[in-house]
Simulated scan of single mutants.
Amino acid sequence: MIKLITGFEKTLYGILLFLLGIVLIASVMDLAYIIFTYIFDQQVFPLLENKEVLSIFSLFLLVLIGIEFFETILAYLRENVIHVEVIIMVAVIAVARKVIVLDTSEATNSHLIGLSLLMLSLGAAYYLVKRSNGLYPLKKG
Results as ranks from 00 to 15, higher is better:
95 V>P: 04
129 V>A: 12
63 V>Y: 07
35 I>A: 02
76 Y>F: 14
2 I>M: 12
39 I>Y: 12
131 R>Y: 02
21 G>P: 02
57 F>M: 14
127 Y>M: 11
64 L>F: 15
30 D>V: 05
25 I>V: 14
19 L>V: 08
79 E>G: 02
3 K>P: 09
93 I>S: 15
60 F>R: 02
97 R>Q: 07
101 V>C: 13
3 K>L: 13
117 L>D: 05
63 V>H: 05
60 F>Y: 03
30 D>M: 02
141 G>C: 02
54 L>I: 05
108 T>P: 09
69 F>P: 04
113 I>F: 09
4 L>A: 04
88 I>Q: 10
120 L>R: 01
109 N>K: 08
83 H>S: 04
42 Q>K: 06
67 I>M: 15
7 G>M: 05
30 D>Q: 04
28 V>D: 05
6 T>A: 12
37 T>W: 04
99 V>D: 07
124 A>N: 06
51 K>I: 04
91 A>N: 04
66 G>P: 06
19 L>H: 03
28 V>Q: 11
125 A>F: 13
122 L>F: 10
62 L>F: 15
90 V>W: 01
62 L>E: 13
19 L>Q: 03
75 A>K: 10
44 V>T: 12
35 I>D: 00
105 S>V: 15
16 L>M: 10
28 V>G: 12
111 H>K: 08
76 Y>H: 09
66 G>M: 10
135 L>I: 05
139 K>C: 01
29 M>A: 12
34 I>T: 05
87 I>K: 06
26 A>I: 01
23 V>K: 10
6 T>V: 08
11 T>H: 05
46 P>L: 10
41 D>W: 03
22 I>T: 08
80 N>I: 01
63 V>C: 12
6 T>P: 00
46 P>M: 11
53 V>G: 04
17 L>P: 03
104 T>Y: 03
45 F>K: 13
79 E>R: 12
1 M>S: 09
24 L>P: 01
2 I>K: 13
106 E>W: 03
91 A>L: 11
94 A>C: 06
91 A>Q: 04
33 Y>L: 01
66 G>S: 09
100 I>E: 06
34 I>V: 04
76 Y>A: 08
78 R>T: 11
117 L>N: 08
7 G>L: 07
66 G>W: 11
101 V>I: 15
129 V>M: 12
42 Q>G: 08
121 S>V: 08
52 E>L: 02
44 V>G: 11
86 V>I: 13
76 Y>K: 14
57 F>L: 15
76 Y>P: 04
59 L>V: 00
88 I>D: 09
115 L>M: 15
86 V>A: 08
70 F>G: 00
2 I>G: 11
82 I>M: 13
56 I>S: 03
13 Y>I: 12
130 K>W: 00
2 I>V: 11
39 I>N: 03
97 R>C: 01
101 V>S: 15
3 K>R: 14
108 T>Q: 07
